[in-house]
Amino acid sequence: MTHSAIALTGFITWTLLLLALMELIRTQLVLRGKIPANGFTPDNANLSPFMQRLARAHANCVESLPVFGGLLLVSIVTGRASITDPLAYLFLACRVFQSLVHLTSLSATAVSVRFTAFAGQMAIGLYWAFKLLVSL
């Protein structure tokens, strides 16, 4: 398996793990009788600040997956993983780091750090897109 395929699988898995954590906590809240099963909002606005950040971190992954995952997938299916492989793990690390920072804080410093991680993903994605377009 290429580094790109591993990174894509890791990105999907990370997105799924954030969802699983959110649903585990929601299930616990329902079972404890703190929230009715139909009492959740998509953004967890009626829950703790952590749960709101978790919903947003998961949404960030879902929003980014078609774009960045698509680039990884194009590279894999066209036999051009050599373009994405060198930065695939760095991309995934930036993605996970961005989510972890999002889960911990919304302070100005944390938001700046989170943006830096996102900017790294954007730069990598733009590089990949350019290189893939030139090579096709």
Rank of each mutant, 00 (worst) to 15 (best):
S135P: 03
V101N: 04
S99P: 05
M51W: 10
V134H: 03
S82E: 10
P36T: 11
L90I: 10
L133F: 13
N46C: 04
L71E: 03
S48Q: 06
C94R: 02
L133W: 06
F50P: 10
A81I: 02
P36V: 11
H102N: 08
V77L: 14
K131T: 13
L100V: 15
A55M: 06
V67C: 11
F130K: 01
R56P: 00
S48T: 15
S105R: 02
N38L: 05
T41Q: 11
P66A: 13
A37D: 11
G79Q: 06
Q98C: 10
L87E: 11
I35E: 11
V62S: 14
F115K: 03
G39P: 04
S112T: 08
G39M: 02
E63K: 12
I35M: 15
A45H: 10
P42F: 09
S64K: 02
L72T: 03
A110V: 05
A88V: 01
P49T: 14
G70E: 07
Y127A: 03
R53P: 07
N44L: 08
P86H: 07
P49A: 14
Y127F: 14
F115V: 06
M122A: 15
L92Q: 14
V67D: 04
P86F: 04
F115T: 11
L73N: 01
G70M: 06
G39R: 02
H102D: 09
S112R: 15
L100D: 05
F115C: 08
Q121D: 01
A123E: 00
L106E: 08
L100Q: 08
P42R: 10
S107F: 02
S48W: 08
P66M: 13
S107V: 01
L106Q: 10
V77C: 09
L106S: 09
I76K: 07
P42N: 11
G39F: 02
A57Y: 15
G120N: 09
P42T: 06
R56C: 01
A108F: 04
P49F: 15
A88R: 01
L126A: 14
N46K: 11
L87T: 15
P36A: 13
V111Y: 00
D85A: 09
I76C: 10
D85G: 04
F68N: 08
V96M: 10
